[in-house]
Simulated assay, not measured.
Amino acid sequence: MKPNTSFSFLKNNYLAPTGASFTHLYGPILGVQASQLYTFLLSLYDQGKEKRLIAVILNHLDLGFAHFLESLDRLIAMNLLEVYETEEGLQFRFVPPLEANQFFANVAYQKLLEKKIGEAAVRDLLPEKPEGEKRKVNFASVFGIDGVSTHQKKTSSFSLEHFKQLMARDGLRFENEQEDLLVLYAITEEKNWTWYETYLLAKETAANLIISTKRMRQKLTQQPQEKGKDEFTPQERAIIREAKNKSSLQFLAGIKKARKAVVTQSERQVISDLAQLGLLDEVINVILLLTFNKVASANLNEKYALKVGNDFAYEGIKTAEEAVLKIRQRQDSHTQKAKEKATKSGQATGKTNVPKWSQPNYTNQTSQEEQADLEQQKRALLEKLNQGGE
């Protein structure tokens, strides 16, 4: 797509100019430029009779091409516009804005609007719920057509009400409800899941009963481990198995119990901090074991654990297998560096306790004058010894 790309509209796709629903509900989310673009495209509608260049839009709205693309993507993401690319150019199809009750039934839309204008302002926009009993009329009985139903109830793939019910049952809570719900909705849409499938992942990756969308993303990006059994030693396989089968708190409690100690509050906080980095329990467990193996202590070296955790988060370690391999790689690197340092140190100093003159190939290179001087010093020392060291 370029500024000189042509575009046209689909026939019989006329929409009325934007009204209050678009202005109050969509406008804050879209922003000024995307809203202006949508309104301008509506004003150009001509039943697809004419082809125009994108440059016309850029010129009229005083938009740069990059800003135009960003605004176009916003309209597509909010399901207000569909764009079809053909060999001859682009075709635009308008999608009408949702009514208020449909708009607020979409969790993501409501939370995005709350981010823009605040919860109090959104509450003022919520449609009033009707009272009394709704009058029902059967379509077939009115029009005399049997076996036909026109009722089409729209259902959302993400049910916030049911999601929160299960959270209350399991004692889970949000860290930041507004931000978390946007990610949960996005995951549901990306994976084409039901709200319940998303909840199961949220529950599995929760840290301290707090839903962690970072850990959910980490779990989703885990790759199947294709390493053969020979890749790991029996001890490493046992570590991986235990790391995967226990929560971080259970794993830590097991280590502490073996050392006749109990988990401290500061150690609990370290686990929480590691989870905040987005690390999964199986990775945290490997870090805990590594840290305890560094020192002979019943207490966790908290600073070291956090240091390793920061490195693992930066390096994108997502599984216990990856963590074990990374630790092995580090140990091998340290061992190699130590050997190289020792070799270089030995070559540079060449220190030894064996005197040079005892070597089989030793050659005395002392000059005659030096030998005469040494003899004189030797005689003077002997005379001094014979006189009692005076």
Rank of each mutant, 00 (worst) to 15 (best):
Leu374Cys: 04
Glu321Gly: 06
Ile210Leu: 13
Glu50Asp: 10
Thr39His: 11
Tyr26Pro: 04
Ile317Val: 12
Glu85Asp: 05
Tyr14Gln: 13
Glu204Trp: 09
Ser71Thr: 06
Leu280Val: 00
Ile187Arg: 09
Thr150Gly: 02
Lys219Gln: 13
Lys153Phe: 13
Phe312Ser: 01
Thr221Trp: 07
Tyr199Ile: 02
Gly89Trp: 02
Thr264Gln: 06
Ile239Cys: 01
Asp332Leu: 00
Glu226Tyr: 09
Leu300Gln: 02
Thr23Met: 08
Ser367Thr: 15
Lys356Glu: 15
Tyr45Ala: 03
Glu88Ile: 08
Lys49Val: 08
Glu82Asp: 09
Lys356Leu: 12
Thr352Tyr: 07
Lys326Ser: 04
Phe139Asp: 01
Ala261Arg: 10
Leu98Asn: 03
Leu385Lys: 07
Leu385Met: 09
Leu220Ile: 05
Ile317Thr: 05
Pro224Leu: 01
Ala55Gly: 10
Phe22Glu: 05
Ala320Cys: 09
Leu37Ala: 03
Gln91Met: 11
Gly171Asn: 04
Gln33Asn: 08
Gln91Leu: 15
Phe292His: 01
Ala207Gly: 12
Leu25Ile: 05
Leu172Phe: 04
Asn176Ala: 07
Leu44His: 04
Ser21His: 06
Asn386Leu: 14
Gly254Asn: 09
Glu370Gln: 14
Lys51Leu: 12
Gln368Ile: 13
Leu201Trp: 00
Lys219Cys: 06
Thr155His: 14
Leu289Asn: 05
Asn301Phe: 04
Asp146Met: 06
Ala298Leu: 08
Leu41Pro: 01
Thr343Pro: 03
Lys378Gly: 06
Asn13Trp: 02
Glu189Ala: 06
Thr198Met: 04
Leu289Pro: 01
Val107Phe: 08
Pro355Thr: 02
Asn176Trp: 05
Lys136Leu: 15
Glu179Tyr: 06
Val324Phe: 00
Leu112Arg: 01
Ile210Cys: 12
His67Asn: 15
Leu182Pro: 00
Lys337Val: 09
Arg173Val: 07
Phe232Val: 00
Lys257Ser: 11
Lys2Leu: 13
Glu133Cys: 06
Leu44Asn: 03
Glu242Lys: 04
Lys203Met: 02
Leu325Tyr: 05
Gln347Thr: 08
Asp311His: 02
Phe65Cys: 05
Lys244Glu: 03
Asp230Ala: 12
Leu125Met: 03
Tyr14Met: 15
Leu249Ala: 10
Trp357Lys: 10
